[in-house]
Amino acid sequence: MQEKLQALKEEALVKITEADDLKALEAVRVGYLGKKGPITEVLRGMGKLSAEERPVVGELANTVRAAITEALEVKKQVFETEALNEQLKKEAIDVTLPGRPVTLGGPHLLTSIVTEIEDLFIGMGFEVKEGPEVETDYYNFEALNLPKNHPARDMQDSFYVTEELLMRTHTSPVQARTMGEYKGNKPVKMICPGKVYRRDTDDATHSHQFTQVEGLYVDKNVRMSDLKGVLNQFAKQFFGEEREIRLRPSFFPFTEPSVEMDISCKVCHGKGCSVCKQTGWIEILGGGMVHPDVLKMAGYDPEIYSGFAFGMGPERIAMLKYGVDDIRHFYTNDQRFLAQYHKA
């Protein structure tokens, strides 16, 4: 009986090896391990054996059954793997075809620039203020030391709605409004981005509507060197560490002394080239120390408080930073223009 079991095992293992698909393998399993199979038969005949023989044969039968089962399992896995591989091969696709597009929008270039400027100044402790675009003559001009008949009003011909109301020509009225809000006894540290309007015919370099970002810091003991320091920090962060700044005297009715700030030319690093018209410098913004009359009109005592203010044009900055060659691009909203600046 023991010999028979051994022979059955050898026989089964050979058949397993020879089986070439899952069906054949199943036939082997049924043939040897099934209820009517020879091993079951052997085990059924155990009752005829002696008490000594029975455990020995029983154990052997189990070993044989285990060996066959394991061989079947191993072979089955081989078949399954093959089948799966076959299946996967059939499922192959052209991975070089384009994916299903996920549409993402993006901010307008001017918004990106204004946001970056806002975040830089927020980092330096400035708050962001806003003001009306239809402004009173008082806030747009008079509170900024531009009384009626002031020659400097020529510099910014305006869109009037009535004699006393106009489209603001700069974001500077927000300075006066914010100082008024703080009632002359609290420091003011703010920037103000917004739309402004001038009586210009739209062309490549002029736009009747454009954007400004204004900044104002009023406190005790604010110095002109602070203006230089803050603007330098801004310029280095915004335009790059390697850029230098210089201040030049200028004139604005609401600041005294007044400055214009240039940054060193990105292309030639100050040597002079066609981008900077051979000067090595590019004008970026205007500013200065807040005029004492402006402080006074807003309720701040110029003997106690001093301050600085500055203003810049995001369109101009965008044109310089990205080489945009026509200011009208910002307002025609050609999708091909808008999409160029959705990267970051």
Binding site: I122, M124, N232, E256
Partner: peptide
């Protein structure tokens, strides 16, 4: 002040940061 500053030279002004109170910008 402007006359003095411009003849002195804006280039010779220091770079300083405001010494006033601290503000939380947001």
């Amino acid at each position: 002040l402007e006359e003095v500053a411009r003849i002195y030279g804006y280039d010779y002004l220091d770079y300083t940061l405001p010494e006033g109170g601290q503000f939380a910008g947001k």
